[in-house]
Amino acid sequence: MSDILVFKNLTKQFGKHKVLDNLSFHIPKGHVVGLVGPNGSGKSTIMKCILGIYPYEQGALYFEGQKITSKNVNQMSSKTGALIESPSIYPFLTGMQHFKLYSATKADVADVVNLMGMGKYINSKVTRYSFGMKQKLGIALALINKPELVILDEPMNGLDLMATLDLRKIIMSEAQRGITFIVSSHILSELEKISDDIILINNGKMVFQTTMPELRGLGQRSYILTTNDNKAAKKLLLQHGFVVADNGSSIQIDNSARQLNDFLTVLIENHIELLDISHQGMDLETATLRYIKGSRGVHND
């Protein structure tokens, strides 16, 4: 699949402080890409560089294969919808007037209002909206002019359970239509559910870019095993050269060499009864914590 957006060695500085440091990654077309990182890691700056709000000092940015400079940044931003930090809305306008302001066609407005379930309050002044309603309007404005790329910075902020569920459905259905999403959020469990790819940023540098199946696969390197005699099982497996460790009421077996059949055979042939087996799941939160701590260590060194 082709990439809609490519960052090549992009560097952005504020004074002497490098906010983005030689950053390279790619965004596949039609994918939902989760941008993850601690506060101040450079996520919002990446988004603002894509939107042309911030110029960058070094490196290159390619949109649909075309190099984007300050002269042609319009070609990218005109095909991009965004919700950055907070919804861009005027309190003296109604929701519907916002769509008129951005010259949306009636058919597009009807589609988006229907999609977001905003029909009941779209003609009310924005001052009467709750935080979640404003957030929904901000997302609707990002989607209104049929963009090819949608950038959402903390879209789940302030949304209740139902609204979060609706937003997840909307992002996934729009992605199926070919729209690419870059979503930044600290609600990692939610991001995990919608993302096809994950980019982890720390201190303006990329820690990793991976797909969700690959990320989950990282956790399948070890198994948690419960038997009727964990001590005996551990001893037996150690004798056969497996890497085994205690894990509370169970034992943990390293499976980086993919030897599941081998160690199961050893246990069964020695009449040890298997009560439970599961692979240690690597979720986004675990991966983020592990790699950020790792990159901090490297950075500090």
């Binding site: 709000i53 300050s70 319009n74 931003s77 965004a82 907070s86 861009s88 809305i89 309190p91």
Partner: peptide
């Protein structure tokens, strides 16, 4: 000032560059 107060300046710059 309203553009900065309501954070709409980002949207304007992104739209018109």
């Amino acid at each position: 000032t309203m553009e900065f107060e309501h954070g709409t300046i980002k949207h304007m710059i992104a739209q018109h560059n």
